[in-house]
Amino acid sequence: MSAAAEDVRARPVPRSARRQAADAFLRDRMAVAGLIVLVLAHAAAILAPALTRWDPTIGDEDGILVPPFSPGHVLGTDEQGRDILARILFGARLAFPEAVVPVVAAGAAGLVLGLIGGFFQRVIGEAVMRTLDVLFAIPMVLLAIAIATTLGSGLPTVILSMAIVITPYIARVVATTAAQQRSAPFVEAARCAGFSEWKILRREILPHVIPAVVVYGTTNMGAMVVFAAGFGFLGLGAQPPTPDWGAMISGGMRSLASAPWVSTVPGIAIVVISLAFNYVGDGLRVALDPRLRTRL
């Protein structure tokens, strides 16, 4: 027996659990493609000033509504002569925080509320879940718009209202998963073995809840890209001249017939990023579940 083999046996959880998850993720081609798209898009957002010589807020006096693939303006320009590629790149600097921050915030809030509702239950849990039900009854978009109009437009408002709106959804995923696992035979067995309730929560429930939240959250980030674009479209998001994908679509509406690229290009960006988040989420679903990832 080699020393290496001996070493592997001495570990209760071999490193390969993580490795197995990575392998399962890598087997999913769409997930890998999605991840590559997200990484490249994020890098492009960070490197935006280096990737384009145009200022996204200042128009080129000579080139209003220049079609794509023109020299100097690869994706064309809009009605003010601003370079669309530059605006897409700088717009991505908003799109990523708008997708990720609300979901992370709602994820944390939803985790706490969902565990109170699904694991601890009792009266306080019931109260939490019924309150969330009230939020469910209000259409998501209307609620977000109501919050945004109350607080005034701007990026922080967009993020906050989106976080508030999706918290009940995440809390419900957490509560359902926790309630399901709570009565699972292995939880009963853990209680039988002398585990305390906190230990059961930490060791038996959370390992099932966290992947569910991560997967649901990642998929939601895709939806948030679209959602945030909707805010921008309605003028509730970042204020002009800040480049915002949603605002870019609404800006291009007036010239849709003559210069369709002004609205279409940001639309494509939204679809691509949103789909990428969805595929990554789906890949994570398989990778994080030991029962799905180990195909024998």
């Binding site: 209760p12 071999p14 659990a17 699972a184 292995f186 067995a189 039988c192 030991p290 029962r291």
Partner: peptide
């Protein structure tokens, strides 16, 4: 203190009495 050390239990479906998330 009693559960596990004093009184242990094994169940009908042993596979379900282990957490599917861990080895």
């Amino acid at each position: 203190r009693i559960r596990g050390r004093g009184i242990g239990m094994i169940f009908q479906n042993a596979r379900l009495s282990f957490n599917p998330a861990y080895r």
